[in-house]
Nucleic acid binder design. Sequence first.
DNA 1: CGAATAAAGTTCCTTTTTGGAACTGACCTA
DNA 2: TAGGTCAGTTCCAAAAAGGAACTTTATTCG
Lengths: 148, 148
Amino acid sequence: MKWDDLRSESCPVARGLSVIGDRWTMLVLRDCFLGVRRFEQMQERLGITRHVLADRLRKLEEDGVLRREAYQERPLRHEYRLTEKGKALYPVLVTLMAWAEEHVPPEEKSSMTLLSRDTGEVLEPVLTDANTGQRITHRNVTARRNTE
Amino acid sequence: MKWDDLRSESCPVARGLSVIGDRWTMLVLRDCFLGVRRFEQMQERLGITRHVLADRLRKLEEDGVLRREAYQERPLRHEYRLTEKGKALYPVLVTLMAWAEEHVPPEEKSSMTLLSRDTGEVLEPVLTDANTGQRITHRNVTARRNTE
DNA sequence: CGAATAAAGTTCCTTTTTGGAACTGACCTA
DNA sequence: TAGGTCAGTTCCAAAAAGGAACTTTATTCG
């Protein structure tokens, strides 16, 4: 299988990865969530080549994760913003971040904490079931494939 | 920046991606969670080249996500199993899956549902704060960088 | 016995993707 | 007019992925 065939897989993990499962994409999105919107800024922060950044932004726009918006004319310049579909990726980013905080220690001491916007308290993200509040782990869950 | 430099970044998202942010890795792990343990099986299911699969498995073992275990001698053969660190990635996989189910529709009708092992009920995974149970979205959370 | 099969890789070669750095085009400012 | 800014594009070399055949140790089939 080639990478591009993932889009049409029946497994949602594969389809998700067809959008964000590539080398730089999630880092671009991380910056978007941090409020970075301009090409130059992203390129400098990420240290990604301009070539690849342009390509990733184009794909994310095609996939409806980012939207390209003019922020000035003369000369015409665009910036990138998360769409609702893009914003919905926040839990993916947070879950990955939480995993890395616990399991992939940094070489230099430094880390990230999530704070509640309402109360300012430190948050401890966990995956739960919306209905029962039950924790979701590999131990108490099974997957079922629904072929209709 | 090169890909390999991500490991030493201070941002946990970057460190996380240094382990799983590559083209095939999450699909390999998906199969691991589905109980696939053997090289041949993975290779066939994923359609990945043997070359790349061998490389990914080696890296995942180095990173402590999988563990290589002999399941027979004469001839000596190994299989791959998730370590605790690997199992802790389950929420990342689920969150991605939930996002794709909602935002990346399949071409053919088919999908995945998560079921509780206890009750058999359909689960709806959401990210919440462990202490308050509050939903975590990009709207009600901010990130703070702790440089100590 | 010899041939075929199996599992888990490795090797070799071609095609794609990246990395790196310079270049472009439309403006703005000193 | 020279230089700066921003958002790319172009070109070339290096790295990674795709594809297919080959290897090694051992088992089964005829």
